[in-house]
Design a binder for these strands. Sequence first.
RNA 1: GUGGGUGUAGCUCAGCUGGCAGAGCACUAGAUUGUGGUUCUAGGGGUCGCGGGUUCAAACCCCGUCACUCACCCCA
Length: 428
Amino acid sequence: MEIQSVKGTRDFYPEDMAKRNFIADLWKEVSLRNGFAEFDGPIFEYLAMYQQKSGEEISSQLFAFEDRGGRMLAIRPEITPTLARMVNQRINTLPRPIKWFSVPRLCRAERPQKGRLREFFQWNIDIIGVDDCLADAEVIFCAVDYLMQAGLTSDDVVVRISSRRLIAALLEYFGIEKEGLEKVYSALDKKSKVPAEVFEKMLAEAIGDANKRQKVLELMSVGSLTQLESFAGEDKNAKDAIEELKRLFNYLNIMGITEFCRFDISIVRGLAYYTGVVFEIYDKSEQLRAICGGGRYDNLLADFGGPKISATGMGMGDCVLGIVLEERGLFKNISEKNKIEYFVTYADEALKSEALKMVASLRRVGKRTDFSYKGGALGKQLKQASAVNAAMCIIVGDEFTQKKQIVIKNMGSGEQSSVDVSDFLGRL
RNA sequence: GUGGGUGUAGCUCAGCUGGCAGAGCACUAGAUUGUGGUUCUAGGGGUCGCGGGUUCAAACCCCGUCACUCACCCCA
């Protein structure tokens, strides 16, 4: 039986690898220019680290295994716990704010579908130790900075922003019981994904009282921050949360990315550990799941046994992003980047050694250089040069024997000229 | 966990009412021993996912099974 690749994994042939690198190289470049430092951790950790935070549901989606020493381990499904562990270990010596990024390879044993695989890469950036929502603004800016750099515009993507703190305060203000909150959250999360009737039905199951339900329905139709204030009344928690969002949007405006950003009260982001501002970035076609998601999680370090220090961050996977970039035709110039600069050919077998010397010289000064093993007719060698998409060809032939010259041929334009070998090597 | 779709050459897919296994692209070689991409010619490459059944005869019909894929659930 032929061995095939495992479900939900990908093989990266050179042309696929070029796309993957296009995505990941840009992640790194944008992280660095936004002031983030790279870190990484092990690809597997103790299983318990992922279980303590999440429970059965999530551990069933882990690739877990036992090592020879009987330790229960798991391949990392996310890097945030590792980040928390690493930061906690050095919390007293790290200068703040801590701005770190990583591009980990992650595995989750979920059922694969469009934009979701079992093995993928995810860009993570986190800012630890800043309470101000300026940090949240910077995380959003960084994500948008990347998408713009990749060639996407506000016509292509939208950042939907809300606040867990705001929702929690308003629901409490409306008098909705704490026990029912989870159900309300998951109904809100569905709002933009299901028909209005279905949404209202879900809400009815979550909230018994018709008056309260009506208030929530009205709340969900709010499209701007200013409309919100009438709902908050004199409730201090709600007013504070609105104030924070206003400041966030002000920062986003100052940073010049307002056109990408929209307040959207239906964004609640799973139910995990978010405590404040939350956001998701979507492709405007609305056909795909989120490109990116993030928000504030102020209990993160404490949850992993550290001090209570605030944190905010986001994650962007390569699957949905790759689909978007492909659809928009934004994988540009990727075949140019690593292509052969010089392909050295020889017109006569007797000149093979001279050609090889030339190859070695070019490689030693850092030029991407190749040649034909088989040699043979010059035409064959040039054909091979075309096949590997070489930019220039060097022909070692009679000119070399007679005048110590080589022919340099531009494979794009077809133009060629003879130069002295010593001049050519001297210019490199 | 639930439901749909698809499995035929390396890739994308045709294949009629059951009758010799096909095309395009890609690959290799030649036309072409000092000039590539285009073109032309030739060639290699198949357990028709797998197992069983019906039939003189199955890629095709029936039963089972596996894989992949899309959607739901979930989504750190």
